[in-house]
């Protein structure tokens, strides 16, 4: 056996990037920098703030004398508004997600069928996702305006609103002025906002079910409902979990909807953790308490993140 001659220098350079030990770290580098600078650093800062007595006027941590232990968390939790915000966050998220799961499944099923104008409908369904949240919410803000609401106008024309009608004698519903209506409005906007993404994810999941498997179910004598509940939905389950976790995180951490639509009102009834952290920490100047409020979400989000990673790993192993 002869020993092969060493590869010429230019050859070795040409295959430099084929080496995973070179290419891997190189490609990961920007992501790592991004995460450290924009996620890691603020997170550490938030944790430090939450255990200190900093304010907007004096945000410096000089030494151990600035650390106050769990005092911020205690103060925050003893505040009735915070508890309301915590409850709202959870209720808004769960309620909107239940609707999103159901609607997204229905929409995905409909959109996966063959019909004329399918592309247009798909485009329209995706539209809310492509508009900036703030703009979309402003649109809703106008639709739910206390005087000029087009919804009220339509209801008046249909005889549902106004003197001697189903929804009372007033000329307006004051959607954002009454607690229950305002809460419902926030939930509706959340649904409107996350539905497109969930639908698209489910649509991708549906089209990844092999045609032969659907054909087999057809031949085996399964009708629509049996196919839906025994074939499609079970096969969709892992993807549905991914979609749900995504929209859970989006909704849980969302600031814009409550902030733009209601500013947490009326009387804090649509306050959520992120708006309350903003009002308390930035507008109220109590940076430490604001950080503590924001961090309340952290354990929940970590649990969700772990769930996501687990799912990803499980589908990798399949």
């Amino acid at each position: 056996m002869s020993i092969p001659a060493p590869a010429p220098q230019h050859r070795r350079q040409r295959y430099f990037f084929d080496n995973e030990r070179v290419l891997g770290p190189l490609l990961l580098f920007p992501a790592v920098v991004y995460i450290i600078a924009l996620v890691g650093f603020p997170l550490i800062l938030a944790v430090l703030y939450a255990f200190s007595d900093v304010t907007v006027g004096d945000p410096r941590i000089r030494g151990t004398e600035n650390f106050v232990g769990f005092e911020n968390f205690r103060d925050v939790f003893n505040d009735g508004v915070f508890r309301k915000a915590l409850r709202n966050t959870i209720v808004f998220t769960l309620v909107s997600q239940v609707f999103v799961i159901v609607f997204a499944n229905v929409l995905a099923l409909v959109l996966s069928a063959d019909f004329h104008g399918k592309r247009l409908v798909r485009f329209l369904v995706l539209l809310p996702w492509t508009t900036p949240i703030a703009l979309g919410v402003l649109g809703w803000f106008w639709m739910l305006d206390s005087v000029y609401s087009p919804i009220d106008y339509i209801m008046r024309r249909m005889g549902l609103l106004g003197p001697d009608s189903m929804f009372g004698p007033g000329r307006n519903m004051y959607w954002l002025g009454k607690s229950d209506l305002a809460q419902a409005a926030v939930v509706v906007v959340h649904i409107w906002r996350t539905l497109p993404l969930a639908t698209v994810i489910l649509l991708a999941g549906l089209s990844s079910i092999p045609q032969d498997v659907k054909d087999a179910a057809n031949v085996d004598g399964a009708g629509f409902w049996r196919q839906l509940f025994y074939i499609r939905l079970p096969l969709l389950l892992p993807i549905m979990a991914v979609a749900t976790l995504f929209s859970l995180v989006f909704t849980f951490t969302d600031l814009t909807v409550s902030l733009v639509l209601t500013r947490g009102g009326p009387v804090n009834d649509t306050q959520v953790l992120s708006t309350w952290a903003y009002f308390k920490g930035i507008q109220g100047g109590n940076l430490a308490q604001g950080a503590a409020i924001a961090l309340f979400l952290l354990p929940v989000l970590i649990a969700i993140a772990i769930g996501m990673l687990r799912l990803a790993r499980r589908s990798e192993n399949d």
Binding site: P210, D215, P234
Partner: peptide
């Protein structure tokens, strides 16, 4: 009753 070239078993 049909047997498919790809088997088409229900994976779940």
């Amino acid at each position: 009753a049909m047997v498919f070239q790809s088997y088409a078993l229900y994976p779940h």
